[in-house]
């Protein structure tokens, strides 16, 4: 992380996101029509961001990050809850099993994303040959790092993570 921080001030523009309708994205659709579904193009991007983040960061973050990115911070912490309750008092054997199980459950969501990522990686290689117009693809890694740092610095609602949603706190137990 320390290595990535100095880059931060350099980037002027915000990274392209799932919810953004950038001109840059549109231009990409028009010029190379190699991506599978144009309407889905905007959805393709958020997994890309994640993928980049995963490459940068260590294992812990990989487990935590996808959900955080999908529902934009302040996650409900359900994943954190389940993993937490598995860890502490169990003997080491159980702990290993538990931690292996969890990613598998989540894998249903992630599989699709990962497939799309593979496609995307090929696009990226191909697009490097084409000249210009693909500005949003430049410095993806840097942008991802920036997003990651922003997520980390944003104040997470610890109370919500610990107690669940405050309104429905009576039902939770």
């Amino acid at each position: 992380l320390a290595a990535e921080e100095p880059k931060k001030p350099d980037t002027m523009e915000m990274p392209a996101f799932a919810d953004s309708d950038d001109d840059l994205e549109n231009s990409e659709e028009e010029e190379i029509q190699d991506s599978d579904g144009d309407p889905e193009d905007s959805e393709d991007e958020s997994p890309d961001e994640e993928e980049e983040e995963m490459e940068d960061s260590d294992d812990e973050v990989v487990v935590r990050k996808p959900t955080a990115a999908l529902d934009s911070g302040n996650c409900t912490g359900e994943d954190a809850i389940s993993s937490d309750s598995d860890t502490d008092e169990e003997p080491p054997k159980d702990m290993d099993e538990g931690s292996e199980d969890l990613p598998e459950e989540d894998a249903v969501d992630e599989e699709d994303l990962l497939k799309e990522d593979e496609d995307y990686m090929e696009d990226n290689d191909a697009s490097e040959d084409t000249v210009g117009a693909l500005k949003w693809k430049e410095d993806l890694k840097k942008k991802a790092a920036e997003t990651f740092l922003r997520h980390q610095q944003s104040v997470t609602n610890l109370r919500k993570l610990v107690y669940g949603t405050v309104v429905e706190n009576e039902d939770n137990e």
Binding site: S83, D84, T87, V155, T156, R159, V162, Y163
Partner: peptide
């Protein structure tokens, strides 16, 4: 940073004593 054990303990404190902590980062 709260340890996982502490987080679960906070939940247990709520169910046994109906007490919720104010948690500020």
């Amino acid at each position: 940073p709260l340890s996982p054990y502490t987080i679960e303990f906070l939940r247990h404190l709520r169910s046994f004593f109906q007490i919720m902590f104010k948690i500020e980062s």
